[in-house]
Computed example of a mutant assay.
Amino acid sequence: MTDAAATSQTAETPLLATLLHEGVYRIVMQRPESMNALSSAMMSALSAELAKAAENPDIRVILLGAEGKVFCAGHDLKELTAARADADGGRATYERIMRQCADLMQQIVRHPKPVIAVVTGVATAAGCQLVASCDLALATDTATFCTPGVNIGLFCSTPMVALSRNVAPKQAMEMLLTGESIDASTAKEFGLINRIVPRDYLETVVQKYASAIASKSALTLKTGKEAFYRQLEMPLDQAYDFAANVMVENMLARDAEEGINAFLQKRAPNWTDS
């Protein structure tokens, strides 16, 4: 398969760099001068790339990374502050931006392809929310995470939604109430990230991790990811009924038949994603 590279950009400033290689699609935020803040423009660019990736059958897994020392500093506070000069004191702007952020996070959760955060720096506030919203997260041993809104009089209420669905309640509240940073080791202990990798080995581990997922049936990944998030919100009996129905439909798929036959015949499966 031919590698494909592209750049999403605003009128002047490149926001994202993208690269597709062997089923793995990299999306890299490249606004280090703004600490890769989730401005309205950045969120629009991310949403557009995710939408395109959802429709591209060559893409099987997505890596979300960033340039610079800060993975993502959360919302663009300068953008939010400027809106205070509006006639309504910024209410309409704040409602639009918070809705846009919520939609982006849900787009990641509902995306048919697995999305993996690759964190090489600080992930704070909505940046921490972005990590928590991804299906998996790999981080360097120097990465840090925090929800510091309480320190500036703005409780991290929307980051709280993703955070509380990834870590235990008391650990989430610790982060939200203190606003203090946690290191990668603590983030792994909390359940916010999956693995910690020394910076020198990051690329090797990320590529191995992503390639292993990309080698699976796209239909199976889509089915499983959707079912995982849907059953989380159900009572136990409903979750089992739902999951049983998913298993039945999955068993009837061509890829399940092919995968089982390949296993029994001790050969590699030939996926058709159907």
Rank of each mutant, 00 (worst) to 15 (best):
Y94T: 13
T124Y: 04
G90L: 11
F71T: 03
V70E: 09
A87P: 02
P112C: 12
G65I: 02
L138C: 05
S133R: 07
L46M: 05
S44N: 09
V109T: 15
A87C: 00
E33Q: 12
Q30R: 15
V70G: 03
I59C: 05
G65P: 00
A137D: 05
S39F: 11
E95F: 10
K113W: 03
A41M: 08
T120F: 00
R60G: 01
I97P: 00
A132V: 12
M98G: 01
L130E: 08
R60L: 01
A139N: 07
V119K: 06
M105G: 07
S34Q: 13
C72S: 15
R99M: 13
G121L: 14
A139E: 07
G74R: 10
Q100L: 13
M98W: 13
H111Q: 06
P32F: 12
A102C: 03
A137F: 10
L38E: 05
Q107D: 02
V131R: 05
M105W: 15
G121D: 12
V119D: 05
L50F: 07
N36F: 11
S133P: 07
Q106K: 13
G121K: 12
A137C: 06
R84M: 13
M98H: 09
S47T: 15
D86P: 00
E67K: 11
A126W: 15
M98Y: 15
C101W: 14
F71R: 01
G89N: 09
R60D: 00
E79K: 05
K113L: 11
A48Q: 13
F71G: 01
A41S: 14
V70S: 07
K78S: 12
C72I: 08
P57Q: 03
L63V: 01
A82D: 14
I108H: 04
I108S: 03
N56C: 05
M105L: 15
I116K: 02
S39T: 11
L136K: 10
L80D: 10
I59T: 09
A139L: 11
M42N: 03
L50N: 02
Q107V: 03
A51S: 14
A82R: 13
K78E: 14
D135E: 06
C134H: 06
Q129N: 15
T81N: 07
V109P: 00
A37D: 04
A53S: 11
E55H: 04
S34G: 01
E79N: 04
C128N: 14
